[in-house]
Design a binder for these strands. Structure first.
Lengths: 239, 239
DNA sequence: TATTGCCACATTGTTCAACAATCTATAGGG
DNA sequence: CCCTATAGATTGTTGAACAATGTGGCAATA
């Protein structure tokens, strides 16, 4: 096997490249929550050194997509109800706070929002629910981009990345995400009409409803599917 | 030189220990903004391997206390006016949002706030301004702890850590921090009286005033002290 | 049978040395 | 004075080695 060393053909470091590969596999659900990522196996599979892999681990840990247990390794976190509540509490504060703090609206920043709304509607009509989720996330990322604040955007990016892990714990994403496509459009309409305060209130309720429905999904999952859940998703190991 | 390998006598990893050493030096101002941290020299001085040092770098980069330039190394960031505005925008949204989202108040969580207020007052009377800043930061950290939300607390921790870098760019901290000790007490009084909404409004104005004063400090510094600033704080190198 | 203690094994934590790739500064030519 | 090329210094990445820890099995015991 020919192994490249040093220059890797792009401007991103090898660790970042590896981190992006793993990030995609985790966010897409290929590596379910609870899975341990073995250094030895991933080194063999990805063709990088242990140190570089561990650096990639750190980048993902930064985003909450991996958790590190000292002397035990890294795992895809299993988010529970408390995490869900925590994530939505932060989302409400940040996203609604962003809207309420706006003094003016740059129409150029509203354009990408419409793109995402339509992408979500299109994907929903085709039944591509993963794409619906992705477009929805990009929509909310675009919402906070209205502030042009790097740190707020970074915070939101991390929160949304973790939220994807929640979506992989609860099943049947379609029933959850379907109605929020419509509410995204309603939200955008309010913003385009300049009704910022009203949009913030709608978003607040939107997020409360979403949290409540996800909590319901957690509860029913724990009631009817705990055995199945334990069999399929716990103590896995990424090869 | 006897070099310890493996077990280091505590439950934290070597990288975390090194990160804490560097964190203190950076937040205390021993390593001014703009300084490059040379791997070679720090490896020699701290007695750890390059890989471990680089892991410590990652941890600090995570908190915004270091910035990484690809193929050029890590630096203590020099925060400018835009960063200052960004940090305070996030502070206002998070800290005020936390207060406004409170439904009830746990008196037990208010106790540490009073401790910090009195610590700040005591330190101010003794003229120990660094300790005033630290107590002030712990006060605001305690404020967001009212939510008992891990992620909100982490976000605040990062923001406050970065803010310390701002305080090292502008000089004369005493005149800036003195009056905020009093406002901290006023804030706490409002909270202890259960006037949460009023406290949130006071905090909002508090943070706007602080941002404005720091911006003034930046402007005067750039006007009267740009030559001195360039001489003392730019392109340093940590030995 | 259930529990405890011990030990071997697998995995992670850390170090070290080497080389590749990149950046920076300097010197030389136009 | 500006541009380019080269040399030196620094970071990026690798691979191997050993230390320390966590895990699970096995035997001895109650």
């Amino acid at each position: 096997m020919v192994r490249m060393t040093g220059w890797n053909g792009s401007n991103e470091s090898t660790a970042e490249r590896i981190a992006n590969v793993l990030r995609q596999q985790i966010t897409e659900g290929d590596v379910p929550p609870g899975t341990q990522l073995s250094e030895e196996r991933l080194v063999a599979r990805l063709g990088v050194s242990r140190n570089t892999l561990r650096e990639a681990f750190r980048l993902l840990t930064h985003d909450g997509l991996l958790v590190h247990h000292h002397n035990r390794g890294v795992f895809v976190p299993v988010l529970d109800e408390a995490d869900l509540v925590d994530l939505y509490r932060l989302r409400r504060i940040v996203e609604c706070g962003v809207l309420r703090s706006l003094t003016g609206l740059d129409p150029n920043l509203l354009l990408p929002l419409r793109v995402e709304v339509e992408a979500a509607e299109s994907a929903a009509s085709r039944g591509e629910w993963d794409e619906v989720v992705t477009a929805n996330m990009r929509f909310h990322q675009g919402l906070v981009r209205l502030t042009e604040s790097r740190r707020i955007q970074d915070t939101t990016r991390r929160v949304l990345a973790e939220l994807r892990l929640v979506f992989h714990v609860v099943s049947n994403p379609e029933v959850l995400h379907e109605r929020y496509v419509r509410r995204n459009r309603a939200l955008l309409d309010l913003l385009e009409a300049g009704k910022i305060a009203q949009a913030a209130d709608e978003l607040e309720q939107y997020l409360r409803d979403a949290e409540e429905e996800l909590l319901d999904a957690y509860r029913t999952m724990r009631r009817v599917g705990s055995a199945e859940y334990a069999r399929t998703s716990v103590a896995g190991e990424m090869r």
